[in-house]
């Protein structure tokens, strides 16, 4: 029997944390992720099942926190659902049994690298990275945007905290872009 040891998106055994000036960037390896897309004409059934299972299905451009499931909108009738990896490594299977055939569910955990950004004010950093009007957006705003040619999801958890989901294979390039911008600003 194999006992495979995972690597993080940055190619290490442990999640990476880097700091520069007021900024802390933390790689998150403890998040399980799956996409949930409503089947055609099954939105009502999905809403009902999701409510029962405690899976939030927030409005467009928003993120809704919960336990164990949080979620953000990614496309019409489609969401990314987050849960703790330790308890929900098989998030796709768990959601399938909870939501039945009202949704198409696909595991996304390892398709992305997650970075949490923390600084008293993230706006000066993010204005160097993407075209999102961060200070004007409410907490809970979730959007897809581009950072140094990479398509990422940006979730505003506050003026001082945000999460970025970037393509996993470009984790190093994305971290480098964030660090470079941080050096440019601070």
């Amino acid at each position: 029997m194999a006992n495979l040891q995972p690597l993080t998106a940055l190619g290490r055994r442990e999640a990476t944390t880097v700091t520069h000036g007021p900024l802390t960037v933390s790689e998150r390896t403890d998040v399980a992720l799956a996409s949930v897309a409503a089947r055609k004409g099954r939105m009502a059934a999905l809403t009902k099942a999701a409510q029962k299972a405690g899976v939030p299905l927030p409005d467009p451009a928003t993120h809704q926190s919960g336990a164990p499931y949080s979620a953000f909108w990614t496309a019409p009738e489609m969401w990314f659902v987050e849960a703790p990896f330790a308890t929900h490594e098989l998030i796709a299977d768990l959601l399938k049994s909870a939501l039945g055939d009202a949704a198409s569910i696909t595991e996304q955990t390892d398709a992305w690298v997650a970075f949490d950004l923390a600084a008293p004010d993230l706006a000066p950093l993010l204005e160097r990275l993407c075209n999102v009007d961060y200070p004007a957006r409410p907490t809970g705003h979730a959007t897809r945007t581009m950072m140094e040619h990479l398509g990422v999801y940006l979730i505003k958890h506050g003026p001082d905290t945000a999460r970025i989901y970037g393509p996993r294979s470009s984790a190093e390039s994305l971290l480098h872009a964030i660090e470079t911008a941080a050096h440019s600003v601070w």
Partner: peptide, 15 residues
């Protein structure tokens, strides 16, 4: 548009 079909990329999710 009336087909029941959902798409998502999983290129990076699987080695």
């Amino acid at each position: 548009p009336e087909m029941d079909v959902q798409l998502i990329s999983t290129t990076e999710a699987w080695a």
